[in-house]
């Protein structure tokens, strides 16, 4: 088997795994009972799924100029998904949309009222 053949097989495996992660995440987004649990399921394809698919694309194209763009895509996806997940999680918790019956321990609601203004970073 040549080098390109091996790269193609690895690329195929990566792409398949990435697509599988996206599928499981979608199942999780539909099945999970409340918003924050859904967000846990949603983090998966955004991080590992994108990395796997982009690794697959890079191994398939085998072009150094493409690899730079792919790394940029992965980094951007990670950086933005952090911001988005934190904003959505915080908004849902503050709006009281969390199902407290699913929480074993809630150390935030049992805290005394916070002294900082709510909009503070």
């Amino acid at each position: 088997m040549t080098w390109t053949g091996v790269a193609d097989v690895v690329a195929a495996a990566c792409i398949l795994l990435g697509a599988l992660l996206a599928l499981i995440a979608a199942i999780g987004v539909v099945r999970m009972p409340d918003l924050l649990s859904r967000m846990h399921a949603a983090t998966k394809p955004q991080v590992l799924g994108t990395v796997l698919v982009m690794a697959g694309v890079g191994l398939r194209l085998r072009d150094l100029s493409v690899v730079g763009v792919l790394v940029l895509i992965v980094l951007l996806q990670m950086a933005t998904s952090i911001v988005a997940s934190h904003m959505v999680g915080r908004a849902s918790f503050r709006a009281g949309q969390v199902r407290h019956d699913l929480l074993v321990i809630d150390e935030l609601s049992s805290e005394p009222a916070q002294d900082e203004p709510r909009g503070a970073p």
Binding site: A22, A25, A26, R38, A42, G49
Partner: peptide, 16 residues
């Protein structure tokens, strides 16, 4: 917010 989470994952799926 549920919809926006789903939209986020949809963007990730589109990227893939």
């Amino acid at each position: 917010l549920d919809r926006s989470v789903a939209l986020d994952v949809l963007v990730a799926v589109t990227v893939s």
